[in-house]
Write a protein that binds this DNA or RNA. Sequence first.
DNA 1: CCCCGGAATGTTTGCGCTAACAATTCTCCA
DNA 2: TGGAGAATTGTTAGCGCAAACATTCCGGGG
Lengths: 344, 344
Amino acid sequence: MRVIDGDRAPVMADVARIAGVSHQTVSRVLNDHPNVRPATRDRVLAAIRELGYRPNAAARTLVTRRTNTLGVISFNTTLYGPASMLYGIEQAAKQHDYFVTVAALAALDRRSVLDAVERLRDQAVEGIIVIAPQTTAVGALANVPSDVPLVAVGCGTHSSLASVAVDNEGGAERATSYLLDLGHRTVHHMAGPASWLDAQEREIGWRRTLESRGASVPEPLTGGDWSARTGFELGHRIARDPQITAVFCANDHMALGLLRALQQAGRRVPEDVSVIGFDDIPEAEYFGPPLTTVRQDFDELGRRALRSLIQLIDADLSGVGRASVRVSIDPGLVVRASAARPAL
Amino acid sequence: MRVIDGDRAPVMADVARIAGVSHQTVSRVLNDHPNVRPATRDRVLAAIRELGYRPNAAARTLVTRRTNTLGVISFNTTLYGPASMLYGIEQAAKQHDYFVTVAALAALDRRSVLDAVERLRDQAVEGIIVIAPQTTAVGALANVPSDVPLVAVGCGTHSSLASVAVDNEGGAERATSYLLDLGHRTVHHMAGPASWLDAQEREIGWRRTLESRGASVPEPLTGGDWSARTGFELGHRIARDPQITAVFCANDHMALGLLRALQQAGRRVPEDVSVIGFDDIPEAEYFGPPLTTVRQDFDELGRRALRSLIQLIDADLSGVGRASVRVSIDPGLVVRASAARPAL
DNA sequence: CCCCGGAATGTTTGCGCTAACAATTCTCCA
DNA sequence: TGGAGAATTGTTAGCGCAAACATTCCGGGG
């Protein structure tokens, strides 16, 4: 018996004593077992309320071997995309009675990713969602021991992992076609960081569209890192080239930088240059001018990822072999004011 | 004995058997106890590696009564501020060997906040950080049973809670003074949502500055919800009023909306109207024109909150009474191109 | 040479819970 | 009215670990 006995948190046995039943009956009430007389159940519930009893999660986990916890690994939760996905994941997890613990990645190398996985496994998460859309990360993930279900979200659909992603190529194609349809001879591309799958896929979609439409394929502008800053820097190059009439940017932030660079150079959007982004961040509508862009539903992406993960977990629990989940979501073009027919 | 005995995860006893020691010695090695002969330690570590042994967190928690887990409650992790704070918190938590589980708030009422707290307590978190800067949330928090340490971050410093926050009044004062110093007769204010403490405090700082400098205090523009959209809508009103030469916006996103509205109305920034924001989001530098704004270091805010929380937890553990932590961080003005002297 | 004291290791106990099994009550019909 | 069988409740046995206590080992001083 402890010294400070009075303020020890109540345990199941305490509840049982008050309710005049065995602790097992308390357990049955808590776990919604059938075959508990309603009157008994009520007595137990009353005792629980009276004591402010709260089941000990660790003890339960120890015997059931379930933690009801999922892990989310994310590179930079500060970006709009990852932040939204995390939000969607948490919302959905709550509904499925799972907790979500996050592991932010300090860097992107193989090592950091595996460390994060280890960290989460130490905490005995039942499954992991990875928001780390870089080739290195996806590569590292292939090495993860398969005893923990794992879903990659927004990491392209080409990897061998279970994954949920937007159809980047399709989105890029839509944007590029739209510009071509407006009458532009060709479309330039401000690419995202080469190490990101999304960037690669968007570039592929753009290139493929130009080729299939018989348009010339200009050298894409590389070196961007998704930020407005690099969009601005690369934008200067675009602003200097009067040949360029249409640009498809790999994301909205870079598009913002480009708009700024064009404005500074005195080139009007969309009269002189048409610009299309990717993501549809909430601010895109208020850029100058409002940005035409490809919409990604990050929230939905997160929810879908969560659902896939739970499928995987349930399959594991019931001993069924895992079906390799692979979900692709179709992005839509949001037409606003930054793209128009070219001047003659 | 279980049917599937072969692939059961190894436990401490397995390691002990392989290393030829007792399970307690394994425990000692794991917990860095002194008085373990180096040779023994090596044998144990080798056995651990060989088996791929991983301690069972639940079992350890059951006996130590420590989960090494912290909870973060956040309203909308999609916003730049909360997302950054969450990031800072997680980074810091990792260093202190804590896990972070998040609970996103579906709504802002008292009930949702308390539900989130309950959820986290069910998971036996050792402490909670709340990122929910609304009056209602803070009010609800006052009702939380005090057996779990709790720190509010970015929720103003006026509540009775332990808190870490930016000096909103100071920041607002800095922005307002700057505009006044440029020669504007007065400064208008596009306020944030009235239910947010930050919004209230920024408005107070703005008002106090005008009063102390003897400038007239115009009616603030209300109804904003931090979004570019509402900034745009309220912006129309500003654009129509030729008297207005300077506006202090409660945050950068609303400032973006305002810039757009002014541009649409043909009013130039900063020649006709000066605009200052609050937050310094990464994009602010690339607005048209680059936004002069008050910088909040969200990352640092998150780290500080975490440190405060850990102090609280340690105080609890060692039985010392909790000192009421209250940290205030000084925001700085970032001068860019959206504010200038008024036209004569 | 023996014994003492600390270093190193082992044994036992219990954390709070659920599963498995055992025991006790009801029901309902022959 | 007496059971058979179901419904309800109780008892026991771990889950995997760390703390408390018990034991063994070892080196050096008397």
